[in-house]
Design a protein around this nucleic acid. Structure first.
Lengths: 115, 115
DNA sequence: ATAATAAATGAACAGATGTTCATATGTTAA
DNA sequence: TTAACATATGAACATCTGTTCATTTATTAT
């Protein structure tokens, strides 16, 4: 213990080493943005639903018990995060998951919640 | 196409089937709460750091560039979600991840972000 | 063209969130 | 018991978020 050090408590070596191990700030920021998407019950439900089957906006709204507008707004967020894709069929637009990652992340989360 | 049906568009069978497949509302709510924790850059950083090494509050604050108070508040949230544990050593309290799930979830997220 | 239907968008607003500041609690050493 | 240090907590505040309502855009059928 070097009594002169004003930061007596700090394990400076450790701090430095961990700092090395950290991903870029921007990456961690993007990561938080991604999880933010999953951090709303309407959106996780949306994602879970779409992991079961593609579906049109109105059916999603009905299943979620919210406005068509609300779903549309949320789908916009999911699109921006590349989590969903969509296809138009006449007046109707069908949304689907962009890839399998989503379900994997959800399932990991469910495992933790189940404990 | 049954033209009399006021919900012409809806694939009611599908909606019903998917409804069956959905986890309980409460589970999905808890799931969202869990991901909400990961959905803030201060907190993911915290979690990432702790996945590398246990650490005391002051060092965490230094590493994150925020107040000791801010870290303490966030750690409270992490404790409430059973994501971290802690041990006291004199005046200092060392925080650590509660289990390995956290890192798994983070790594899954990082994979998606990396694309 | 016009009407009808599906989805998207913008404005507005209530409620939640994350931070700092000030202060309290707990622990150790003098 | 007092001083010093580490952490926790409460209040206050600015910002962010998610929803609804009203409206617009896009597509199809008449």
């Amino acid at each position: 213990m070097d009594g002169d050090n004003p930061y007596l408590h700090a394990q400076e070596d450790l701090v430095a080493r961990v700092k090395e191990a950290l991903p870029e700030d921007e990456v961690l920021y993007d990561l938080a943005e991604l999880f933010k998407i999953f951090g709303d019950s309407t959106r996780v439900k949306l994602l879970y639903i779409l992991s079961v089957s593609e579906m049109c906006v109105q059916d999603l709204a009905q299943l979620l018990g919210v406005t068509q507008s609300a779903v549309s707004h949320q789908l916009r967020a999911l699109k921006a995060s590349k989590l969903v894709r969509y296809r138009r069929e006449g007046k109707t637009i069908f949304y689907a998951l962009a890839d399998g990652h989503v379900r994997t992340i959800i399932d990991q989360g469910l495992e933790h919640v189940a404990e």
